[in-house]
């Protein structure tokens, strides 16, 4: 039987951490793009569109991410669409993040005084001009800190993808534990690696929060 040194364990975990990072990046970028589209669509204030988006958000916020992963992975194959763990994980994390990011950003837009919209309207600006020049620049400023903060949730959320056989940090930890029977050591290393990824993000979010508080 093969022996695993501590370095072997760490090396394998580090290799797997790449996929955690990549999956997080996909979920954040994909979720950001979808979330942005949802946010812009919602601000049109069309009751039909808003109702649909509301239901979408409720669906993804009101069910566990794990169930969403199961449904994407097993559910889609049941109806004949064969998905690999990468696609299933990327897709469900993207949808999950888009719902939360949309809620964060909508809150940031709603936080701006109604008078900003009214001022634009009385000056004759169109909806798109109002968004582009007045609303979004201000909303972005307050959105940065909570958005970076949410990225920490995404990184930790990727751990659930291990359940559907996606080999990222957590899955690699489980596999190494099966081979070494040293759960405490292996999972402590896993935890430390997550912390190393997430802590800088938290610090960055905090830094941004302080910064946006002092400026205007």
């Amino acid at each position: 039987m093969m022996q695993f040194s501590d370095w072997d364990i760490l090396r394998n975990l580090l290799l797997a951490a790449r996929w955690t990072l990549l999956l997080s990046l996909i979920a954040f970028t994909g979720g950001g793009l979808v979330g942005l589209c949802l946010t812009l669509a919602r601000s049109l204030r069309n009751p039909l569109i808003s109702g649909f988006i509301k239901a979408y958000v409720e669906l993804f916020q009101g069910t566990p991410l794990l169930m969403q992963l199961f449904l994407a992975f097993f559910g889609l194959s049941l109806i004949g669409i064969d998905v690999d763990p990468w696609t299933a994980a990327g897709l469900s994390l993207t949808l999950f993040s888009s719902a939360f990011l949309h809620e964060i950003w909508r809150g940031c837009i709603d936080a701006l005084p109604k008078g900003q919209w009214e001022a634009c309207r009385t000056l004759g600006l169109s909806y798109l001009q109002t968004m582009r020049y007045v609303i979004l620049p201000q909303a972005l400023r307050i959105a940065i800190a909570p958005t970076v903060g949410f990225s920490v949730q995404i990184v930790k959320g990727t751990a659930l993808a291990s359940i559907i056989g996606f080999v990222e940090l957590t899955k690699a930890g489980t596999m190494l534990n099966n081979a070494t029977f040293q759960p405490f050591k292996v999972f402590a290393m896993v935890a430390v690696l997550y912390f190393i990824i997430c802590y800088p993000l938290s610090l960055f979010a905090k830094h941004l929060e302080n910064k946006t508080h002092v400026t205007r």
């Binding site: 005084p113 008078g115 900003q116 009214e118 001022a119 009385t122 007045v134 201000q138 400023r141 205007r216």
Partner: peptide
């Protein structure tokens, strides 16, 4: 034109 009680200037 309209001028508001709370100015509604664009702060950025």
């Amino acid at each position: 034109g309209m001028v508001f009680q709370n100015f509604n200037l664009f702060p950025h």
